[in-house]
């Protein structure tokens, strides 16, 4: 899949839910390219900022959009990767803090 197409497709789905793409389009495209790469590698679009196990069952919580996006956007205005952000985050109304990893370490499978 082409990155432009993925961008438009996801934008249409996610924006009405209140999840905007980061205003930094270069970064967004890099992340979307990484998602496409992960789809080729693992068969599913797993978070590019986390280590995937390669087992879909184990990685289910980190398939993008991950289950941590909602609490992270609520608390920090951004998901862990800075791919999806709130309107306030994009308008610099809230500080761009580093989003700490919310995924419990026991979920990481080697």
């Amino acid at each position: 899949m082409e990155v432009e197409k993925l961008y438009e497709m996801l934008k249409k789905i996610q924006e009405p839910k209140g999840y905007n793409f980061n205003i930094d389009k270069k970064r967004v495209f890099e992340l979307l390219e990484a998602l496409i790469k992960n789809k080729d590698r693992y068969g599913y679009m797993v978070c590019p900022c986390r280590l995937a196990s390669g087992s879909k069952e184990n990685d289910r919580d980190i398939i993008c959009p991950c289950v941590y996006r909602k609490p992270d956007v609520e608390e920090y205005g951004s998901c862990y990767c800075n791919l999806y952000v709130s309107t306030d985050w994009n308008q610099n109304k809230i500080p761009h803090e580093y989003v700490p990893e919310r995924r419990p370490p026991e979920k990481i499978m080697f």
Partner: peptide, 10 residues
Amino acid sequence: SLSTCSHCKS
């Protein structure tokens, strides 16, 4: 790092 991670690239 991870090869795909935006924070790692930064």
